[in-house]
């Protein structure tokens, strides 16, 4: 499980780094105080952390989506084996 998480985190970091590279504003002119060097550094750091979180959450939730599918499939097979109809799903 923790190995999966490490892989996900790794993928999220790489993907965020690629996104950051594609978004890199090389034309910065530092003219306006919210565009000072210190603020830009803060933007890059905060943006990167938030992007990693979104990617990580996405990968984790996508995994759960497939997990649900597998679980439901198993339940269905079990239901069919015991002769119950699929109607038994609780809403």
């Amino acid at each position: 499980m923790s190995r999966e998480r490490i892989i996900r985190m790794g993928v999220a970091i790489v993907a965020s780094a690629v996104s950051l590279a594609l978004s890199w504003p090389y034309w910065r002119d530092f003219e306006y105080w919210p565009e000072s060097r210190a603020m830009w550094l803060a933007y890059f750091a905060l943006g990167f952390v938030l992007a990693v979180y979104v990617f990580y959450a996405f990968l984790g939730r996508l995994g759960t989506l497939f997990l649900h599918d597998a679980l439901e499939r198993a339940q269905r097979l079990q239901g069919a084996a015991t002769g119950d109809s699929a109607e038994e799903h609780k809403p």
Binding site: A57, G60, T64, L67, H68, L71
Partner: peptide, 18 residues
């Protein structure tokens, strides 16, 4: 249902975090 049976379910925590 949000986690496999027998595993600690952290769905609520994850949703709050989001």
């Amino acid at each position: 249902m949000s986690c496999a049976p027998g595993e600690p379910c952290e769905e609520g925590v994850k949703r709050r975090r989001a």
